[in-house]
């Protein structure tokens, strides 16, 4: 899907450490928008910035881009503040709001002025238009674009400077299923080229198949910053589900062998602390019939809910009571 472009290799060898956000603090009046936000975005990896609405994701991205000032802390791009970059789009490509276009300007011309601001020419514009598949609509006025077309135009703008870092705010918003599939593959291919990719979302399901690394955000700070596999393991523990018609027999055998067992359904029991293969062996040796022995995996959705439970700011009062 993505054509390799000239200059890519040189950027990759620069070995830029991506984005380093450290101790951001920002207050709007009485509301604390950022409260010590810190994380790192590494090259070659898709980093998901997830958290409920209002947790500080967009503010963090605006701070990284030098649009908003902070009261404390730093956000550095390859060791430099964004506002000190000479041709910033050659370092960071970003998409904050796909609707932020002049309705009367064509998509191609929108990219053209951006290209001119970085000393690039019209040939590069044609390249990125083709790359995102916007060629048929490129010369039409952007006011008539669908949401998906605007997203593609925004991605094209982010790719314009062939930057080692790509930062997208809620790129899946308003995309149709085809678009979402395209976007996932696209983000993975960007990371595969060695770029640092930061993608924000308020829905874990949107990033769980895309991101390698997650920064979970709540109330203005990162509450988890880890690889996807580590996060899942941390929440799942090592529980195994056994499906069997002879539940009582199975439980007796397992308890006798020293396992911690709980009946969790009409024909299921959960075993903690034992690996699945050992359980299967024990049950077979004792002639306990079973139809399934499977290691339990928490979904990222569970991880997210677990982590953000305390951090959600706008949860309804009744909902809070029920969940506690």
């Amino acid at each position: 899907m993505l054509r390799r472009t000239v200059g890519m290799s040189s950027l990759r060898t620069a070995g830029a450490p991506g984005i380093v956000v450290a101790g951001l603090r920002k207050r709007y009046g009485t509301a604390l928008a950022l409260d010590g936000m810190s994380f790192t975005v590494r090259p070659g990896v898709v980093t998901g910035l997830v958290g409920p609405n209002g947790a500080g994701k967009s503010t963090t991205m605006r701070v990284i881009l030098g649009l908003d000032a902070v009261d404390e802390g730093t956000a550095l791009i390859g060791g430099k503040p964004y506002r000190g970059l000479r041709h910033p789009l050659k370092h960071v490509g970003s998409l904050l709001d796909a609707a932020a276009l002049h309705a009367g300007r064509s998509g191609r011309d929108h990219l053209l002025w951006l290209a001119h601001s970085q000393g690039l020419d019209a040939r590069r514009v044609e390249q990125v238009i083709e790359q995102v598949g916007l060629t048929p609509a490129a010369r039409r006025k952007a006011g008539g674009y669908s949401l998906g077309m605007r997203q593609r135009l925004g991605i094209a703008a982010a790719l314009l400077g062939d930057p080692p870092i790509i930062m997208l705010d809620e790129p899946f918003n308003g995309m149709d299923p085809d678009g979402i599939v395209w976007m996932r593959g696209f983000l993975r291919s960007l990371a595969a080229q060695g770029r640092a990719v930061l993608v924000s979302s308020h829905l874990m399901s949107e990033v769980q198949d895309t991101a390698d690394h997650l920064v979970v955000v709540g109330r203005g700070k990162a509450i988890a910053d880890a690889g996807v596999a580590d996060l899942i393991a941390a929440v799942s523990g090592d529980r195994v589900t056994v499906r069997t018609a002879a539940g009582a027999h199975a439980m007796r055998v397992l308890v006798r062998a020293g396992a911690t067992v709980a009946a969790t359904g009409r024909d299921t029991i959960t075993v903690s602390g034992w690996p699945a293969d050992r359980i299967a062996t024990l049950l077979s040796q004792n002639a306990v019939p079973f139809s399934e022995v499977s290691a339990h995996r928490a979904s990222l959705e569970d991880v997210y809910l677990e982590l953000t439970r305390e951090a959600v700011e706008f949860r309804a009062a009744t909902h809070t009571e029920v969940s506690r």
């Binding site: 881009l65 649009l67 964004y82 506002r83 789009l89 970003s94 932020a100 951006l114 970085q118």
Partner: peptide, 14 residues
């Protein structure tokens, strides 16, 4: 009005 000022300032931080 359109919010494009952010795109402008991201492209030209000075």
């Amino acid at each position: 009005g359109s919010g494009m000022i952010r795109t402008t300032l991201a492209a030209m931080p000075r």
